[in-house]
């Protein structure tokens, strides 16, 4: 097992997630909200990769005559790669929407987007 306990990673990831969530809840500019979401997704990646290192089942194998323990699955790594791709897709669509709103309204301040209310 690695020397650093898994809790340290989880605390960093939770901190990152909380900062991102705070940004999404308090920021009034759509671009800043998007940045908050990116922080949250990076916290997910950190969690996934750290937990993969600790949580994967191990199998015994013989390498050069020595018996070693290998991690048998790649779930966490694969998860992180998918989340990175997903963050990119989300950012692309999100920025496109923000630009479209800016073109029609000349602002991306969320408080001024008040056409739809009721």
């Amino acid at each position: 097992m690695p020397a650093i306990p898994v809790w340290w990673y989880l605390m960093v990831a939770t901190g990152l997630f909380s900062i991102g969530l705070y940004a999404t809840l308090t920021r009034r500019n759509a671009v800043n909200v998007l940045m908050g979401v990116e922080l949250m997704l990076n916290a997910v990646n950190l969690n996934a990769v750290a937990l993969w290192r600790y949580a994967s089942p191990t199998v015994s194998a013989t390498v050069d005559g020595q018996s070693v323990q290998l991690l048998s699955t790649l779930d966490g790594q694969v998860f992180a790669i998918f989340v990175i791709a997903l963050a990119a897709a989300e950012a692309a669509v999100g920025l496109a929407l923000i630009i479209a709103v800016y073109r029609s309204r000349r602002t991306v301040e969320l408080e001024q987007l008040d056409m739809l209310q009721g």
Binding site: V6, L10, A13, F17, G20, L21, T24, A30, V33, L34, G36, V37, M40, L41, A43, V44, N47, A48, L51, W52, Y54, A55, D75, G76, F79, V83, L86, E90, V93, G94, L97, I98, A100, V101, R105, L110, L113, M115, L116
Partner: peptide, 26 residues
Amino acid sequence: EAGLKYFLYGSVTSAAMLFGISLIYG
């Protein structure tokens, strides 16, 4: 405007869901 609002709510809740999934994985 509807699309942007949908997106902003959706991206936050889905990021939260992904965080939950990463913990369940752990």
